[in-house]
Design a binder for these strands. Structure first.
Length: 344
DNA sequence: CTACCTTCAGTATCGTACTT
DNA sequence: AAGTACGATACTGAAGGTAG
């Protein structure tokens, strides 16, 4: 086996009698060459079996076209779906992604960020909650966060307050005796807190009996299941026979609860109404399709990348003008009424 | 030991020949 | 004078080599 050396611009230049500058232009600005010469180079590439070398290109111009991502986990279907949507923006913006799954502890995540920076990412999308936006803003690299505390950095979020309000309104329309919201404890500066406040606001404005349950659900099924089971047991004993309208802060957890109910009763009992949040794929694919306050996950992803690309493009200019203050983009939620609230 | 090349495979920048 | 189509060369960051 003879080691065949990589074909380079130099080889192509020698073969075609152009300079390597011209070969470079063929790739980066083909229109600046005559059609005839484009064809000559194109033929030479095939003949010599040239393989593009982006590492060399990165070395020469310093632009990696990498975006770093830190995501908390891939248990919640919202995260896997938004990751899916972010990755698909490659077709539009041509940026590639380096991804870490974080939310372990601050030190670990700082290490991840350093690693990303070492790979010369041009921008970063943060979904994990571990590191404050103040610290992130000090990183001197464009950053966009999605659905987390975002005071000092750009962000794209769902209108969570409206979502919580819509969920409560839907449950109220079905004349539930008690409205229940289940969420994990979140301080007021994280967007998801709006689900709680929107829900509470509606209940108070309409003098409805309601209850907020906050628990830590962890980042996997193993952690979530016992918590949901406990909550369900409590509700069963607290409100027997009453019509319970339950709004859970994610479809993933709503699905866990739905499964527990169906295993117990063989179906979703008439006195249970269930509304999730996210409109992640699981809400459609569940045993009974789950009603949900939909985040427009495709839009969140697209807007986040677009916002980031804008800043990264600005950074590449000779005289970049940084944003004077963070941009916060809000995407409205869309309510999906499915079988867990519209019993047949 | 360390100061100074080379190497890798491209790009940025400026320059040139030629046409309009 | 301006535009088009190309070329020459320094330069990029880090690792490895080498001379002193």
């Amino acid at each position: 086996m003879k080691e065949k050396k990589n074909v380079t611009f130099n080889d192509i230049a020698d073969y075609t009698n152009f300079s390597k500058t011209t070969i470079s232009r063929y790739f980066n600005n083909p229109d600046s060459l005559t059609l005839k010469n484009q064809q000559i180079i194109s033929d030479a590439l095939v003949k010599l079996g040239y393989q593009e070398n982006k590492v060399a290109r990165i070395l020469a111009n310093g632009k990696t076209e990498f975006i770093g991502i830190i995501i908390p986990d891939l248990y919640y279907h919202f995260y896997s779906e938004i990751l899916n949507q972010i990755l698909s923006t490659y077709e539009v913006f041509n940026y590639k992604f380096l991804i870490f799954v974080g939310n372990k502890n601050e030190e670990t995540e700082r290490r991840y960020i350093q690693e990303l920076l070492a790979y010369k990412i041009e921008g970063m999308i943060i979904l994990s909650h571990t590191i404050s936006s103040k610290e992130l803003s000090g990183l001197s690299i464009p950053i966009v966060t999605i659905e987390r505390e975002d005071r000092y950095v750009c962000s794209v979020n769902t209108d969570n307050h409206m979502g919580g309000y819509q969920a409560a309104a839907l449950l109220a329309r079905h004349k539930c005796d008690i409205l229940i919201h289940i969420n994990s404890p979140a301080s007021e500066d994280v967007p998801a807190h709006g689900r709680l406040s929107g829900f509470s606001d509606f209940c108070r404005e309409n003098s409805l009996e309601y209850r907020i349950i906050q628990k830590e659900f962890g980042h996997d099924y193993k952690g979530a299941l016992p918590q949901i089971r406990t909550i369900l047991d409590d509700l069963e004993s607290l409100y027997p026979g009453q019509k319970k309208g339950i709004f859970i802060s994610s479809d993933t957890l709503a699905n866990v609860m739905l499964n527990l109910l169906i295993r117990k009763y063989g179906t979703l009992p008439e006195d249970y109404l269930l509304v999730g949040f996210d409109n992640s794929p699981i809400s459609r694919e569940a045993v009974l399709p789950i009603s949900t306050v939909g985040q427009q996950i495709d839009k969140l992803a697209y807007e986040a990348v677009r916002l980031l690309v804008e800043q990264m493009t600005e950074q590449k200019k000779r005289k970049p003008v940084p944003l004077d203050k963070p941009v916060h983009k809000i995407i409205p939620p869309i309510l999906f009424r499915r079988e867990t609230t519209e019993h047949s």
